[in-house]
Nucleic acid binder design. Structure first.
Length: 430
RNA sequence: UCCCCGGUAGCUCAAUUGGCAGAGCGGUUGGCUGUUAACCAAUAGGUUGCAGGUUCGAGUCCUGCCCGGGGAGCCA
């Protein structure tokens, strides 16, 4: 008998097939038995009928517990009463293993309990849906950049020095030296961009920040494109196109998962190019008008991001932040060196910053001065300064946080559910 | 690091002013020919996070600690 996956079951209407999976739930009603089977691709109801209640099939059925593994064989038929619209009439079943008391029931559980059982929680339908969306987002990101002639240039995870500060780095032994886990591939991206023109890196990044909010992970995935000769305006457009590309892909290919998540997709469908642009100078009075106490020169906090996303029914691009609060490599605006050519993309519906980036300093003398002002060890940046000695050009790039994007698309409030095994401030298990 | 909240059965939660520690789910047993987190009946299940204190009496009040959740700062 043919082994098929549940996601393909509609193609086998009227045929005998075999499904290999796990018990999601079961119900019995005298001489009828209902089994909800999942196989990783979907859920299907399998039904067993028998005139005698002690039939061998029923005896096997009654031994099954939640999450027991099994092989069921039977005929597929359309049935409106079944969840999913198709049902299998069980001819025979083999038990692979009878599961011990499964801790996660179909009833409510607290977050600490579910996080403790994350390795099992992944089997639940909503977690399954979120992670399918994540996989689709990752695929969309790669398709987007590969389709536009970007070269994937992976940057190292073990690095000899900080990209920005030094307080948020994980330190590790590197034989007789110290190494740090990467918190951004950007500096290396600038080198590969000068070699390949358009590049991106995509991988995990690590920040030892004692952040304990629904928007932060200690280990998260970031995609970072870098484009030689691109200006701030070019990179903003690239970011818009990327966001729209991912959104369209997920809305078409993961529609079913968004339904499972009960995501109202109308706000996502309404997102259009161009996103509203707002300079920092314009944002500050707007925020104060809405009740924020922000002063010119302060960075946005999460309340400020939420306020802005409430004003616009769209993602918003905020640009030209004060030089003092941004990274050392940010290019000052030509008309006003107190602000930089940087951009933050704030997602709609209060999902916060999903993209941050901008134009990098390409002038050697200015970059040297900034490294000094930020009290960074010059010797660690010699290679980086070389990029400004040998054919320096204006260039720009950004970083997009995968988990924040997934959380926005899925309408999931907490970022920890958007990665299979989240690393959090007080949780590294499982 | 700081602020707020919580910890009672396997799970989710109750417990009046400090006065017999309970319910639903899950488990087990039985019943039911179309269930949708099925339903009905019965049943087992407790070091109330840990240590100390107040009291005739503490799940409840006090002190310290541990663990977790939400937020700030910082950021994607």
């Amino acid at each position: 008998m043919k082994w098929v996956y549940i996601e393909d079951i509609a193609q086998y209407d009227g045929q005998d097939v075999e499904i290999r999976g796990w018990v999601y739930n079961k119900r019995s009603s005298g001489k009828v038995r209902f089994l909800l089977v999942r196989d990783g691709t979907g859920l299907v109801q399998a039904t067993a009928f028998s005139a005698e209640k002690d039939s061998p099939l029923f005896q096997k059925f009654d031994r099954l517990t939640q999450e027991s593994s099994l092989v069921v064989r039977g005929r597929v038929r359309e049935d409106k009463r079944a969840p999913g619209g198709y049902e299998m009439t069980i001819a025979d079943l083999d038990i692979v293993q009878v599961a011990a008391d499964y801790p996660i029931t179909l009833k409510e559980h607290s977050t600490p309990f579910l996080m403790e059982h994350r390795h099992l929680w992944l089997r639940s339908s909503k977690q399954h849906a979120v992670l399918c969306v994540r996989a689709e987002v990752v695929k969309a990101i790669r398709d987007f950049f590969d389709g536009r002639g970007f070269r994937l240039m992976d940057t190292p995870i073990l690095t000899p020095s900080a990209c920005e500060g030094t307080t948020t780095l994980f330190e590790t032994a590197y034989f007789d030296q110290k190494a740090y886990l990467s918190q951004s591939g950007q500096l290396y991206n600038e080198a590969t961009a000068m070699a390949f023109g358009k590049v991106y890196c995509f991988g995990p990044t690590f920040r030892a920040e004692k952040s304990k909010t629904r928007r932060h992970l200690i280990e998260f995935w970031m995609v970072e494109p870098e484009v030689a000769f691109a200006t701030l305006a070019d990179i903003i457009e690239l970011g818009e196109d990327l966001v729209l590309f991912i959104m369209e892909r997920v809305l078409t290919k993961r529609k079913h998962d968004l339904e499972i998540l009960e995501r109202d997709t109308r706000p996502l469908e309404a997102v259009k190019k161009p996103f509203p642009r707002l300079t920092y100078d314009q944002a500050v009075p707007l925020l104060r008008e809405k009740g924020s106490t922000i002063e010119w020169g302060n960075d946005f906090g999460s309340p400020e991001e939420t306020l802005i996303s409430e004003v616009y029914n769209s993602p918003v691009c905020v640009t030209h932040f004060p030089t003092a609060i941004k990274a050392f490599y940010m290019q000052p605006a030509p008309e006003n060196p107190d602000v930089v050519l940087g951009v933050d993309f704030l997602a709609s519906e209060g999902y916060g910053e999903v993209i941050g980036g901008g134009q990098r300093i390409h002038d050697l003398a200015l970059l040297e001065r900034r490294i000094e002002e930020h009290k960074l060890p010059r010797e660690a940046y010699e290679w980086y300064l070389d990029l400004r000695k040998y054919g320096s050009v204006p260039h720009s790039g950004f970083g997009m946080g995968v988990e924040r994007m997934v959380s926005w698309l899925c309408g999931i409030k907490h970022i920890r559910e958007t990665i299979p095994f989240p690393r959090l401030l007080y949780r590294i298990y499982p």
